[in-house]
């Protein structure tokens, strides 16, 4: 389940007002989410949650649900 916090980060980076994110939403379905802005999304997520992604983790992300899962797992292991 994509949280409102993650939705807001993505919308802010992509300068979008609204978008209906589902777990299986992929970047190519979201206006403005191309490969360059993807890195900005990742940077914003890292900053917001104080986490760091490894290169291999970034290559495995298929959709927004994957991104949320990696965030959740990093947050829970940090506790």
């Amino acid at each position: 389940m994509v949280t409102d916090q993650l939705k807001k980060i993505i919308l802010d980076v992509l300068k979008l007002d609204e978008f209906e994110f589902q777990d299986n939403t992929t970047a190519d379905q979201v206006p403005g989410w191309d490969s360059l802005s993807h890195l900005n999304v990742i940077t914003a997520v890292e900053k917001e949650y104080s986490i760091r992604f490894k290169a291999y983790e970034l290559l495995k992300l298929k959709d927004v649900g994957d991104l949320q899962n990696v965030i959740n797992s990093k947050l829970s292991s940090a506790k």
Partner: peptide
């Protein structure tokens, strides 16, 4: 496409 996702 891999490089742009993970430039390192």
């Amino acid at each position: 496409f891999e490089w742009i996702l993970a430039p390192v």
